[in-house]
């Protein structure tokens, strides 16, 4: 059973805020593994997975960013038609709702690694294991 630590950072709708945040992370020598931006008229939430979660958290805290550390599941989705559908059907079977999902930039041919945030992590992990759908471990996600 393995989950990935993701940081969701509150980004106000002001010019330069995203650049400021990503520069802060870059200057600390932290690599963004993947990211996703959710936006509304007033604000955005930048969700990131990084190679050094502890350092990133300290950095965000020190610099006064509003953030939440959340755990998400990484799934090794087969890169073929129906790959995502199979995963979602499995979750649906046990009534697990997907809050949001986004993909990793792929490095392994034949695999589309995907980040999924669900409302019931335990149930999701159990059904994925039962269906022999491979989970991306935290280590794999951070690429240590």
């Amino acid at each position: 059973m393995d989950t990935i630590k993701q940081f969701s950072v509150f980004v106000e709708n002001k010019q330069g805020r995203m650049a400021e945040l990503t520069r802060l992370i870059a200057d600390a020598g932290i690599d963004l593994r993947t990211l996703s931006l959710a936006d509304t008229r007033d604000f955005g939430i930048l969700r990131i997975i990084v190679n050094k979660p502890e350092e990133t958290e300290a950095l965000l805290k020190q610099n006064g960013w509003t953030y939440k550390a959340t755990s998400v599941i990484g799934v090794k989705v087969p890169d073929c038609p129906g790959g995502v559908a199979t995963v979602l059907e499995a979750l649906n079977e046990v009534n697990v709702n997907v809050e949001y999902m986004y993909a990793f930039v792929n490095r392994t041919p034949g695999r589309a690694d995907t980040v999924i945030c669900v409302d019931d992590e335990q149930a999701a992990l159990e059904i994925l294991q039962k269906k022999h759908i491979d989970i991306l471990t935290a280590e794999e996600a951070y690429d240590i």
């Binding site: 959710a38 604000f43 939430i45 969700r47 509003t66 953030y67 939440k68 949001y100």
Partner: peptide, 15 residues
Amino acid sequence: EMNTEQFSDKMKDIQ
């Protein structure tokens, strides 16, 4: 202003 506890990762919670 909201504080860190009031912030949520989920867009719909904030809305």
